[in-house]
């Protein structure tokens, strides 16, 4: 790559720093001026810079955005999931762990006794949602802040997946 040689003035650094401060200040005062005039209903056609105060303020996400997973419940609150293990099979990150059990209703037959999802491994590809024949898993919770202090906390169990956000954060 060809880099142009720095001139003597540039190499002095102080003038370049001042130039930067000037640029930042210009934006700051110009936006301050615009926001102030907007308060009085003036200059509405000129837009001012916007900052979202995350996490106090959260911008609405697009509904199709793949966010944290959630298991869809039946009317009685039990999961729709029938433990067919297709999501577990298709998952490229191998982050879903299901153990199947017997459902008392012979028309349902099979139910997930355990359904764990390791967010530390998940790559948010959405294959699990696409492959599910029962529409039992969705990625529509709009929860994006999944950070945790330990690997264990990244593991979501069936209760947390059925009722997103119900788990106590340590």
């Amino acid at each position: 790559m060809n880099r142009s040689e720095l001139t003597f003035i540039e190499r002095l650094y102080i003038f370049e720093a001042l130039k930067g401060i000037l640029l930042t200040s210009r934006h700051f005062f110009w936006n301050l001026f615009l926001h102030t005039t907007h308060l009085f209903g003036l200059l509405k056609n000129k837009s001012a810079a916007v900052t979202v105060q995350y996490p106090d303020e959260i911008r609405p996400y697009a509904p199709r955005l793949r966010t944290r997973h959630h298991l869809v419940p039946r009317a009685d609150g039990s999961p729709r999931c029938v433990a067919c293990m297709l999501c577990e099979t298709v998952c490229p990150a191998k982050c879903i762990y299901i153990i199947a059990g017997e459902h008392p209703d012979p028309n349902v037959e099979k139910v997930a006794k355990r359904f764990d999802l390791d967010l530390g491994k998940c790559v948010y590809c959405g294959f699990c949602v696409e492959v599910c024949p029962e529409d039992a898993i969705r990625m529509d919770t709009q929860i994006m802040n999944i950070a945790a202090y330990s690997r264990e906390e990244m593991l979501l169990d069936i209760n947390e997946l059925l009722r997103p956000g119900s788990r106590k954060q340590s």
């Binding site: 029938v82 433990a83 067919c84 297709l86 349902v108 037959e109 099979k110 024949p133 029962e134």
Partner: peptide
Amino acid sequence: PLDCPVCDQS
């Protein structure tokens, strides 16, 4: 029936 998800034969 469309039982494949719960069927052991599947």
